[in-house]
Design a protein around this nucleic acid. Structure first.
Length: 655
RNA sequence: GCCGUUUUAGCUCAGGGGUAGAGCACCUCAUUCGUAAUGAGGGGGUCGUAGGUUCAAAUCCUAUAAACGGCACCA
């Protein structure tokens, strides 16, 4: 490198010249001693690097101090290393594998014959604190491939050896040491383990497959969180607790919305209150769809296996389908359920699309009929693996707000725009401002010509661009039959769930031989768009509950108004009030119990009833109500008539 | 499906070899009390299920089911 110089551009825009090979630490030192002291890493052209890494070409450089947001990534990564060292110190013979950072924390996957338990956490954390306190410097070395493989194999670290073996030949084999402890790692790291600090906590253990492949070994994963200081850690832990309170399973029980039980795992028992939400939501969607020129249909629940063979589901998804033998059951007491071998089978529908194609195929369709949009609140069954079931979010019986649009290639763009617009409007009505959109494009194994895929992918892209909707690209993640859009919403605990989806399908119309007659009299294949906006109604209600923490907007609230009496003197007036509310279409209940008003207010507040009309002798005499809204302590006394009417107006569905 | 954890009254949970406990809810009585819990009394559980060990099992062992946390899967 000699005396060649490099130009370093700092965040304030100033450019300084250093000799080539200068390190981040040296740059920091040249700016201010205090900066060098506070520095934990350096960003070089946006890439986080070790402070000690020589910089050999012109670059934009920012020094990362421990208090900077960018340092969180390093703190967590280093914490993962400290965890690994601690675990290997306490549990000899444990192999290390990978330990990346994740949102809000980190994990490390270990291979050990005996799995860890959360009871080991105290000891591991203690050892981690000792390692942090010791403050060994992280040092970076580059090793030869064979040397590295030999080293790790000798140590019995077969997973690490495998990782190195699979690294591309062009990749440097980087080894980081923290004192005695050595690990293969991409880096970067902070100067010493001391910089990790004490604001970390181990959270949970879990099984995880080596390289995410269920055919490979099962490892034990330890999850942790790490922050810059104790206050941040506490804030995060409090946030987790708050999120737990919003869990739809907890609120569903507390608010008497639904339940699940062993005899029908993965299928929901909707109680009156929960089903009231369902009906309000479904009604809203129905009005939306009919106005958007969809035609609502209803198709069979059970169909012969031949039907599913034709659609291709029988071969590919049979293990997740509920199959019913087409045999009359034996009624002999204590006998076998079926006496004879079934000659044929029926299956509960796992999806609605093939049935919609059947409707499309009735009669001859003209290009004039397109686009044809068939909608169904279709109840589907999928035999999901036990471990996948999760409250309302992942169930075995669910209802999709499903629709299939049959159209021509040239209509893909327009239909995509209509869909995205409609979804956006609906999500806005439902209170979702933040969701992410993913565009999943052609996978390697696929049907349809490249030309058609171009048209389809561009159609989706163009639709999003035209509407100014931001999205991320997921190349290769599309279905074999076409590209798709996924709208993703997070739940209370930060888990992501796919809700709305738009999927182009070049396969099914072909398989099931759907066609229409074009202007020139020729037979043409329609393109089929699968689309859902809520996705599954069950899941969406779960997300709604979490999003609103149970405090649903008036139009969705199962009980919109409770009329509560102060003394029994007001009973008959309260009856009149409820009657009026009901006459206006409101979901109102009365609480005439012999309880103090404090008790009633507390109870209905906890039940998350949005509005209470409190009535006592005074209100009865004056024909008024004292209005109390959830979350407010204000009492607003209004004449009954106007109060009821304005509440009814407010409770109207947004569409 | 895989790994781990859990399962005791309607709900939330305590109890860890000697025959089951709290708070809330429920029922009864008294109280009519103006915006987040009125008081007193009462009823309620073969401790997830099936085996086993033991004089004795909610408690120990084995199997099994479900739920929970991840992983894998999600047409």
């Amino acid at each position: 490198m000699g005396d060649k110089n490099v130009n370093i551009t700092l965040p304030d825009g100033s450019v300084r010249s250093y000799r080539a090979g200068v390190t981040g630490l040296e740059i920091a030192d040249s700016i201010a001693k205090s900066l060098a002291k506070a520095a934990v890493g350096v960003s070089v052209d946006g890439q986080l690097c070790d402070l000690s890494l020589p910089i050999c070409k012109d670059a934009k450089v920012a020094i990362i101090r421990r208090q900077d947001d960018a340092a969180l990534e390093m703190i967590r990564h280093d914490a993962a290393h400290v965890l690994a060292e601690a675990v290997q110190g306490l549990f000899p013979g444990t192999q290390v594998t990978i330990g990346p950072t994740i949102e809000n924390g980190f994990y490390y996957d270990f291979a050990r014959n005996e799995p860890f338990s959360t009871e080991d956490f105290a000891a591991i954390e203690k050892e981690m604190r000792r390692i942090v306190e010791r403050g060994a410097p992280f040092t970076r070395e580059v090793w030869g491939r064979d040397e590295a493989i030999k080293f790790f194999k000798n140590k019995g670290e077969n997973y690490k050896a495998e990782l190195i073996q699979d690294l591309p030949v062009t990749e440097e084999i980087k080894i980081y040491k923290q004192g005695e402890w050595t690990d293969l790692c991409r880096g970067p790291h902070m100067p010493t383990t001391k910089h990790v600090g004490n604001a970390f906590k181990l959270l949970k253990v879990a099984g995880a497959y080596w390289r995410g492949d269920h055919n490979k070994a099962q490892l034990t994963r330890i999850y942790g969180t790490a922050w810059r200081d104790e206050k941040e850690l506490q804030q995060y832990l409090t946030m987790l607790e708050e999120a737990e309170k919003r869990d739809h399973r907890k609120l569903g029980k507390e608010m008497d919305l639904f339940h699940l039980q062993e005899e029908a795992q993965g299928s929901v028992f909707w109680h009156e209150k929960g089903y009231t939400i369902w009906l309000a939501l479904e009604g809203y969607m129905r009005r939306r769809l009919l106005d958007a020129d969809y035609k609502e249909v209803k198709t069979p629940q059970l169909m012969d296996s031949r039907f599913w063979e034709a659609s291709g589901h029988w071969g590919k998804y049979r293990e997740n389908m509920f199959v019913v033998p087409d045999v009359v059951p034996n009624t002999e007491e204590g006998g076998k359920v079926f006496k004879e071998e079934p000659k044929s089978f029926l299956a509960l529908k796992p999806m609605n699309c093939p049935a919609h194609v059947q409707i499309f195929k009735q009669g001859i369709k003209s290009y004039r009929d397109l686009p044809l949009r068939l909608a169904e609140f279709g109840c589907c069954h999928r035999n999901e693996p036990h471990g996948a079931l999760h409250g309302l979010m992942r169930v075995r019986q669910f209802t999709q707000d499903d629709a299939h649009i049959f159209c021509r290639d040239s209509q893909i763009l327009d239909e995509s725009i209509r869909f995205c617009k409609l979804t956006e409007e609906i999500y806005k009505d439902l209170g979702f401002e933040s969701y992410t959109i993913r565009l999943e494009t052609r996978p390697e194994k696929r049907v349809g010509s490249d030309e058609l895929w171009d048209k389809a992918e561009n159609g989706l892209k163009e639709a999003l661009d035209k509407l100014g909707m931001k999205y991320t690209l997921a190349p290769g993640d599309g279905a074999f039959y076409g590209p798709k859009l996924a709208f993703i919403i997070k739940d209370a605990i930060g888990r992501e769930w796919g809700c709305a989806t738009l999927q182009l399908d070049f396969n099914l119309p072909e398989r099931l031989d759907a066609h229409y007659t074009a202007e020139d009299g020729s037979r043409q294949r329609p393109v089929m768009l699968h689309r859902a906006i809520l996705g599954s109604i069950e899941r969406f209600i779960g997300i709604l509950i979490e999003n609103y923490a149970g405090k649903l907007p008036l139009w969705l609230a199962p009980v919109q108004c409770v009329v509560a009496t102060i003394t029994s003197e007001a009973d008959s007036y309260a009856d009149q009030v409820v009657e009026q509310l009901k006459a206006l279409g409101l979901r109102a209940e009365i609480d005439k119990r012999n309880e103090k008003i404090n008790y009633k207010v507390r109870e209905h507040s906890l039940a998350k009833v949005p509005v209470m009309f409190v009535v006592g002798a005074r209100e009865a005499a004056e024909q008024t109500v004292a209005i109390r809204r959830l979350g407010s302590q204000d009492q607003n006394v209004q004449p009954l008539k106007s109060a009821a009417e304005s509440l009814a107006g407010e409770a109207k569905s947004p569409y």
